[in-house]
Simulated scan of single mutants.
Amino acid sequence: MTNKLIYQISLTMINGVGDILARHLLETFGDPEAIFSEKKQTLEKVPGIGTLLAAEIKRPEVFLKAEQELAFIEKNNITPYFLTDNEYPERLKQCPDAPVLFYFKGNANLNQKHIISIVGTRHSTDYGRELTAGLIDKMASLLPDTLIVSGLAYGIDICAHRNALKNQLATVAVLAHGLDRIYPSIHRNTAVEMLPQGGLLTDFPSKTEPDKPNFVKRNRIVAGLADATIVIESADKGGSLITADIAFSYGRDVFTFPGRVTDTHSKGCHLLVKQNKAGLITSAEDLISAMRWDIPQQKQSGAIQTELSFPEREDFTQIQSLLNEKKELHINQLALHLDIAVHQLSGILFEMEMNGIIKTLPGNIYALVKN
Rank of each mutant, 00 (worst) to 15 (best):
E33P: 04
I35N: 00
I35D: 01
L52K: 15
V62I: 13
Q68W: 05
F82V: 06
L83T: 06
R91P: 01
L92T: 07
L92S: 06
P96S: 12
A98Q: 04
Y103V: 04
K105Y: 06
N107V: 02
A108W: 00
H123P: 00
E130I: 03
T132Y: 03
L142F: 14
P144F: 12
D145I: 11
A160S: 15
L165K: 00
A170W: 02
V174P: 05
D180A: 07
M194R: 03
P196T: 00
P196K: 01
F204H: 06
K207H: 09
P210C: 09
P213N: 01
V216A: 10
V216I: 15
V216E: 04
V222K: 03
V222F: 02
L225P: 09
A228C: 15
T229D: 09
I232A: 01
I232R: 01
S234Q: 03
D245Q: 12
Y250P: 11
D253M: 03
V254Q: 08
T256K: 04
F257G: 03
P258C: 10
V261R: 08
T262C: 05
H265E: 10
H270R: 15
N276L: 12
S283L: 07
A284D: 05
A290Q: 14
R292W: 08
I295E: 01
Q300S: 07
I304D: 02
F316E: 00
I319F: 03
E325N: 13
L329E: 09
D339Y: 00
I340W: 00
V342D: 07
I357D: 02
K359V: 06
T360M: 04
N364E: 15
Y366Q: 07
V369N: 14
K370G: 02
N371K: 15
